[in-house]
Amino acid sequence: MLTVNHLAKSYDGEKKSLTDVSFSVHPGEVTVIIGPSGAGKTTILRSINQLIRDDDGEILFDDTDMRQLNRSQLRRARCRIGMIFQNYNLIEPLTAIENVLHGCLGTKSNLAGIFSLYSNREKETALKLLEKVGLKDFAYQQCRNLSGGQKQRVGIARALMQHPKIILCDEPIASLDPKSTITVMDILRDLAINDGISVLINLHQVDIAREYADHVIGINNGQVVFDDRTQALSDAAITGIYQKGAVPERSLVHEF
């Protein structure tokens, strides 16, 4: 479904942010990427839908290399890749249902985008998705009035509106309280099990990764240092992921 081969990326041309990263993501599974700050987790995730143009390697999504696509091909490929963010990135002045409907605009015409033309069927789908994430009663609320956990659930509904084959989650729970964390993670796991969507999540919380992941990828200093089923993630393995290699904070300080 998604295979990443020998991905490499450097931001300043010298220091490598990623060196030779390879892994696969399978349908119906929750795959979690863990690793210290600055290890390259976000770079990997953003390379998959080419928000970051990587320097080298291969990203096979449905057997096409995302790196070889031209602008309009890439745009069409992105329509089937959902993404949710730490800061939710909703359009705050709009209502929840309007935000969810944005998910289907990628496959619609310019005119539909400009005049917000959605079919009744699309609106029904949007309402059903909001119901699925438990926000049916909030469909007509402005998103700026929602809580963090509610915003993230709108974000998930928006990603689902794309009918995605894969959902990329960049630190989806980093700004949430423990209760919302569980709600959001439960929804994501449910998507993998019941809808057969591949869910790829960047996480800081190892305990959450252990509880929800089918597959864990450990990243340190731009390299894959662990790639196995969650059962194999021993305490020793975790120590290895977080300790080996350069301390990322040092490089940050160095830049200033």
Binding site: N89, H102, L105, I114, R158, Q162
Partner: peptide, 22 residues
């Protein structure tokens, strides 16, 4: 925030839709 526009691009929205909707 540049992230908002990036988010719209990540969903495959056209420029016209990004301007109008985001």
């Amino acid at each position: 925030s540049p992230e908002i526009i990036e988010t719209m691009q990540a969903m495959g929205l056209k420029k016209s839709a990004i301007i109008r909707q985001a």
